[in-house]
Amino acid sequence: MTTKWRKARRSENNPNCVELNNTLDHVRDSKNATGPALHGDLPALVRAVRAGRVNAPPMSTADHGC
C-alpha cells in the first residue's frame, strides 16, 4: 500500500505544520517530507487530549496557524 500524506485544509498556506498519513499512525514535519516520521496511535492521542488527560502549556494566538 502506498502511503499518502495529508495536511489540514486550514494550514494549506502555512509550511510550519505536520502531516498525517492515510492510516493515522504516522505524523511528519511538512517542511521535511523525506525526513523521519513519528509513529504512534494518533487517534488515541486525540482522545486523551479531548478528555483532558494530556497536560500542555496554553497556546499563544501565534501558534494557531495549523
Rank of each mutant, 00 (worst) to 15 (best):
N16P: 04
N32E: 12
P58S: 08
A44W: 04
M1G: 09
M59D: 13
A44R: 11
N21V: 00
E12H: 13
G40D: 11
N16A: 08
C66E: 10
M1E: 10
H26R: 15
V49R: 11
E12T: 14
N14H: 09
R28I: 01
L45H: 06
G40H: 11
N21R: 03
P57F: 04
A56W: 11
P58I: 00
A8T: 01
W5R: 02
V46C: 07
N32D: 14
R6D: 11
W5D: 05
H26V: 00
R9K: 13
C17F: 00
C17Q: 02
A56H: 14
V46W: 12
A44D: 13
V49W: 08
W5H: 04
C66S: 11
M59H: 09
L20S: 05
R10Q: 10
S11F: 03
V27Y: 02
R9T: 13
T34Q: 00
D63C: 08
W5G: 01
E19Y: 00
L38P: 07
L45F: 15
A51C: 03
G40I: 04
H26T: 01
G35F: 08
D63V: 05
A51V: 07
G52S: 10
L45K: 07
R53L: 14
R47F: 05
R10V: 09
R53E: 12
G52E: 12
R47P: 03
D29S: 01
R50K: 15
R47V: 08
K4P: 00
V18I: 14
T2A: 12
D29Y: 06
K7E: 04
A44Q: 09
A33M: 14
D41G: 05
C17L: 00
N16C: 07
H26F: 12
L45Y: 10
G52I: 05
K4H: 13
L38N: 04
K4W: 06
H64W: 10
R53I: 04
C66G: 15
R47Q: 15
T34Y: 00
L24E: 05
L45C: 03
V54A: 10
R28N: 02
A56P: 00
K4Q: 14
S60L: 08
T23S: 12
P15R: 10
E12K: 13
N21E: 05
M1V: 04
D41S: 06
A62G: 08
H26D: 06
K7D: 06
R50M: 08
P36V: 00
T2H: 12
K7Q: 14
L38C: 09
H64N: 11
V18C: 12
A44Y: 04
A56I: 01
R6V: 05
M59L: 15
T23R: 13
M1A: 09
H64I: 06
K4F: 04
R53F: 07
P58V: 02
L45T: 01
N55R: 14
R6L: 06
A56F: 11
N32T: 09
G35K: 04
R9E: 14
H64D: 11
D25A: 02
E12W: 10
G35T: 05
V49P: 08
T23Y: 09
S30Q: 05
A37E: 07
K7A: 06
L38T: 03
R28E: 02
A8V: 01
V49T: 09
N22W: 08
N13K: 09
K7L: 02
V49G: 09
S60F: 05
D29F: 02
